[in-house]
């Protein structure tokens, strides 16, 4: 391990002061150092999208992001999405539409969907498909995930 250096960033709205060696990726920092294990390790090579977090609002692969390079920036993980005791509309839609099965890809999909709906509150089906085309799901065939995002975007139950 190279020598750790101090690192400050904002995670889920709170300031975090920690240390990280140069070779630490954000995924490891979150899971192993900060205990934010909601961010999942699926392939570790930037393919599956399970490790998606929001970096300054933009969905980003935490397994391919060096922690030291996000110094001073704002991270949202799945743990920071919902208000205390509640769920966001898109989280609620995932529950109601059965968009989770095994749930392992779910955090990544939710962060991607959240960013999509902030940027484009009324996406078409094609826009939804394009937005989630970097997240792999092996359970749902994506069908109910797409339905849930559509429902969240229109406010439909």
């Amino acid at each position: 391990m190279s020598s750790p250096a101090p690192l400050k960033l904002t995670i889920n709205g709170l300031p975090v002061a920690t240390v990280a060696p140069a070779e630490r990726v954000l995924l490891d920092l979150l899971r192993d150092d900060l205990g934010l294990v909601g961010t999942k390790r699926g392939c570790d090579l930037g393919t599956c999208g399970c490790c998606t977090v929001l970096l300054d609002g933009r969905p980003t692969l935490s397994c391919l992001t060096l922690a030291r390079l996000v110094e001073g920036r704002t991270i949202t993980t799945i743990e920071g999405l919902a208000p205390p005791g509640g769920l966001t509309p898109v989280q609620r839609a995932f529950v109601e539409h059965g968009a989770t099965q095994c749930g392992f890809c779910t955090p990544g999909f939710l962060l991607t969907a959240t960013a999509l709906l902030r940027e484009n509150p009324r996406p078409t089906r094609d826009e939804i498909v394009r937005a989630i085309s970097g997240n792999l799901c092996r359970c749902t065939g994506y069908t109910k995930i797409i339905e849930a995002i559509e429902a969240a975007s229109t406010g439909a139950p």
């Binding site: 969905p59 992001t65 970097g134």
Partner: peptide, 12 residues
């Protein structure tokens, strides 16, 4: 551009 890898990869 839009055909490269995935939106997640393209973010970085």
């Amino acid at each position: 551009l839009r055909e490269i890898a995935t939106p997640l990869v393209r973010a970085s």
